[in-house]
Write a protein that binds this DNA or RNA. Sequence first.
DNA 1: AGCATCATATACTGTGTAGTATACAGTCAC
DNA 2: GTGACTGTATACTACACAGTATATGATGCT
Lengths: 118, 118
Amino acid sequence: MRNAFGAYLRKRREELLGDSPEYSIRKVAAKIGVQPSYISKVEREEVAPPSEATIIRWAETLNEDPDVLLALAGKVSADLRDAIVKRPKVFAELIRELKDAPDHALLRVVREVRDGNW
Amino acid sequence: MRNAFGAYLRKRREELLGDSPEYSIRKVAAKIGVQPSYISKVEREEVAPPSEATIIRWAETLNEDPDVLLALAGKVSADLRDAIVKRPKVFAELIRELKDAPDHALLRVVREVRDGNW
DNA sequence: AGCATCATATACTGTGTAGTATACAGTCAC
DNA sequence: GTGACTGTATACTACACAGTATATGATGCT
């Protein structure tokens, strides 16, 4: 059950727990809306990562980026999936073209699009 | 069980069947490596779309674009998912920025990247 | 009439997903 | 030493996924 997701979350929760007792397994479980035992199992990677919805609530609870947590779980956010599914050809081509480009190149594209140079 | 995937495949297979008897349900099933009854059920949308691997073999058999068939099934190809999962922040930003951009804008990005203007 | 071939109906199966519910053992406060 | 917390172990569950296996009825050939 190796997935890197659990370890990351445990580390993050323990950091927060250092500052405030509001981040015990039980407290976090209550905020996310699952059982404490489930948090324990996920953090120890005894079970597979949760559903997308649960991961997102988890991210909110720990002030983490949901896209990053989803990625650690090997998942892609539904809204991104939808965008690709609506125009599979263009997006497939785009992503395959950009998948080996350096980060700064992608960010430059983002900026140019945002500035409306189209 | 509405998904548009089955109807598209049935139409496509029947087109091919007009030219050659190699595209009966039985023949196609043998090529894809599943039972004929399963093809029948998928085409009539009696069941959910198949797994990614089966969709890809299906696409090969009918000379269709796998990305398009996967999209009709509401899925995204594993290699695209991997690219996003490896760099979730940049790709999430990129896709959200481009999701409402017109096709020609995306294609222009593809071309510019391909031409190496970076 | 008999056989092949067509699609479809029906029943069933193993595996994965996404958790819940309850019980338990350790630690700290007072 | 007992009450209020920790985290974890164990057992169980409902439903979705991705099909298989077999039987059946219809159509066409010769």
